[in-house]
Every structure is written in structure tokens, then in C-alpha cells.
Design a protein around this nucleic acid. Sequence first.
DNA 1: ACTTACGGTAAGAGATAGCTTACCAAAAAT
DNA 2: ATTTTTGGTAAGCTATCTCTTACCGTAAGT
Lengths: 104, 104
Amino acid sequence: MTNARFALDALADPTRRRILEKLRHGPRRVGEIAAGLPVSRPAVSQHLKLLKECGLVVQMPAGTRHVYAIAPQGLGELRAYLDGLWEDALAAFAAHVAQEKSDD
Amino acid sequence: MTNARFALDALADPTRRRILEKLRHGPRRVGEIAAGLPVSRPAVSQHLKLLKECGLVVQMPAGTRHVYAIAPQGLGELRAYLDGLWEDALAAFAAHVAQEKSDD
DNA sequence: ACTTACGGTAAGAGATAGCTTACCAAAAAT
DNA sequence: ATTTTTGGTAAGCTATCTCTTACCGTAAGT
């Protein structure tokens, strides 16, 4: 999907990757996510907003606390994109090797 | 691997993604890759250098012509990283759903 | 040997992205 | 009702990224 395009943009930033690592094993509150990260909490909010926009995380308000979690579907679409690219590349590589042999 | 980190950085740029699309079905010369792209050939050279450094493409000099191709291995490492993240997220999601049900 | 074609490198400019501080809104607690 | 806690938003600064033009090296062709 073209969504993968935005997801790849999102995954380019180290801080966003660290956020996803924090969410890897379950939902977390914003404060928990920001704790330990080398940037301010507002910066984390901005990253979460972007991650939500491209479908990599989902938000569940719980009173004044906001809980975030990885959205498996968004990550799945990205995997599908890379899988397609990978399969085509493998096929092209195999074809190339075959041609190399025939050149001997 | 930590290589996935750099690969994700590389895939963030639209021009680099278009380059990979051009290489998707087989090796191409630099001139062929640059043709049709909205940037100059030196820009393409710079992108190819970066893609090579993070293991997403390989370079095969053929005289004064330089042929590039997707490196299936580099792409595979990236897939592996995303697969791990995806599997953990799915498990966490399932656990979350289960807990939701037990809360009824 | 000279010329042409191909492509990598360097330097500088412009755009973009991420961070910080300051501020605001809403829910919970007292 | 007031205070406290939580987190999203705005504005501005800085750093980084990508682009272009200009230049150079090397291999092939004549």
C-alpha cells in the first residue's frame, strides 16, 4: 500500500524507533514512553502523533491518561511492501546468477 | 541487526525508493537509473553510494559503466527486524484483547 | 594519442525535520 | 471549587539532508 511510504518515513527517525521498542511488548502511557528517552515529553507527543497518522500506533484515551499501542495492521502493510520488493529482488538475483553461469 | 537501522534511514527518501523500484526486476546502469527520475545524475550517484553503504544494493563495475543491483541479503535483514517487531506487537495485542475480555 | 562517454566527488544553497520552551485543555483528586 | 496531573499544541531555532553546478578520473572508441 502507499501507506507503507509514510510508515517508512516514520521508521527513519531513531527516537520513533525507540518509541516503538517501548511499545513492543504492550501498551504504554505517554509519560512511560517519554521516561528514559533523551528528548522532552512534547517531542514524544509529536512523534506519537506522526506514528498514529501513518497507522503504526493506535491511541486509547483513558481519562487524562493517553495509552498508545503498536497497530499490528500498519506494521503488516509495511512488511507486505518489503516482502514484495524482496521477492522480486530475489527472483532477479537468481535470474542474474543463471545468466552468469550460461556466460561461462 | 543494527544494519536495519541504516536501511530504514535509507528507505525514508522517496528518490531512493524509486531507485529501488527501478532495480526491483534486475540490475541497471547508473544512467538507466537516473533516466526518468526528477533529479540530476550526481544526485542519483549520491543515493546509490548511501544505498551501497547500508547494504541494500551492490555495485558491479563493468568497464566505465557501473551496474547496480538490489542486495537481497540487506533487504532480508530489514525484513527480519520488522518481522520480530511485528510478532511481538501481535502477541502483545492478543494479550491485550484477552485482558479486555476478562474485564467484562 | 586524442576524444568521447560514463560516473563519482566537492562545495555550497535551500528546504525539511526534530527539539525546546511556553502555553493551554481536560480529567482526577482533595 | 480549586489544585494537580497528564499530555497535546504553537512558535521558533538549529541541524541535517538533498539538490545543483562544476570538476575530475577512467575506460572505450576512432
